[in-house]
Simulated scan of single mutants.
Amino acid sequence: MSSTATPTRGRFRGGAGLGLVAWLAGIVFFLPIAWMALTSFHSEADAATNPPSFGAALTLDGYREFFGAGGGASPWPSLINSTVASVVSTLLVLLLALPAAYALSIRPVRKWTDVLFFFLSTKMLPVVAGLLPIYLFAKNAGMLDNIWLLVLLYTSMNLPIAVWMMHSFLAEVPVAVIEAAQIDGARLPTVLTRVVAPIALPGIAATALICFIFSWNELLFARVLTGVVAETAPVFLTGFITSQGLFLAKVCAASLVISLPVLAAGFAAQDKLVQGLSLGAVK
């Protein structure tokens, strides 16, 4: 009786300990976000105090200034530009990555491992190393300060990682299901959209979310290649940081607002994201 209870009690204590560590890790990661949110509701004078004043009066001045109530620029054009660049580039990545991953997993080409390594090797080049050639190309092509240039760049930047991720997801699709659809006369577009895509939907959702986050947060190319017309939200955010005056509360308010689309997308797709990130992890 006691020999049976001891292992059970030990496993219970081990599970409780891991749960406690997970909660502590979650709190540690959440604290900076909570601090930023609290600071965004303080006045600039209270936000600049060190250590921070947790009991200071709350105000919406930071959000009012971010949305241009004080005579500043409106953030809506930048938010729309970020939305267009992120959503369109993510859709293009999915359209291109799905057939590529299908060819490398379900219908593997010769030396498919070399192909995957080539895709991954394109991410090894430092982004800043390609900044000057891309800038010169955009200048000569008359595409500076053009949102569609960012769409093209974000698509090419996210495509390798998308193919790499979706290769693992599509490898879990049963080949018998695909062969049955082909016997029924389904062509490749039908197989991809009506057979492969529904089965691998969690993986596709995870890939789409990661590509969306990468595009939304990208700053370097947007900072160099855009001006006023195609300015994105991260570039607009950097405009609040100045060498004169207090700006901490306004920057925290702007950061929180700009982060909301990513947080909302992650929350809405959290079940698909967990399934997709675990799909294909264990063969």
Rank of each mutant, 00 (worst) to 15 (best):
A233N: 07
D145V: 08
V28A: 14
P174S: 00
A47I: 02
A5W: 13
A162V: 03
F169G: 04
S3K: 12
L192H: 02
L220K: 10
V128A: 09
F267M: 08
Q270P: 01
L98E: 03
L150G: 12
V21M: 13
A200E: 06
L132W: 04
A103N: 15
T193G: 09
L98G: 03
S53A: 13
A101T: 11
F137K: 12
V228Q: 03
T242P: 08
A176V: 14
A34Y: 05
L150H: 02
N50H: 07
W148D: 14
A222T: 07
I134P: 12
P75C: 01
P32E: 11
T232C: 04
R187C: 00
G130C: 03
M36S: 14
P108D: 11
A180I: 10
P198Q: 05
L125I: 15
L94I: 03
T6A: 12
E218Q: 15
G71A: 02
G72S: 08
M143V: 08
F221A: 08
L92G: 03
S89H: 04
G130T: 06
V191C: 01
T238P: 10
E231P: 10
P75Q: 04
G26Q: 06
F221S: 15
V195I: 14
A253T: 14
A206L: 14
I210M: 09
E65Q: 13
S121I: 02
V195A: 01
S53L: 10
V28P: 06
T207E: 09
T39N: 15
R194C: 11
V173E: 06
A208Q: 11
L95Y: 10
P126G: 13
A48R: 03
V262R: 00
A101S: 04
S259V: 02
L91M: 06
P52L: 00
G227F: 10
I33Q: 04
K139C: 13
F118H: 15
S2T: 11
G185Y: 07
L20H: 06
V282I: 06
A129Y: 07
L220N: 02
D184N: 08
Q244H: 14
L95S: 01
S255V: 05
V262C: 00
L277K: 01
W112S: 12
L20S: 10
L246C: 05
T113H: 09
Y154F: 15
A269K: 02
V28L: 12
F214T: 12
F117E: 10
G280S: 04
A180C: 11
P133K: 02
A249P: 14
V88I: 01
L263F: 11
A45E: 13
V151G: 09
L96F: 04
S78Y: 05
M166E: 09
A129D: 15
Q275L: 13
C211F: 03
A253K: 09
T8H: 04
T190S: 12
A176N: 15
A25Q: 13
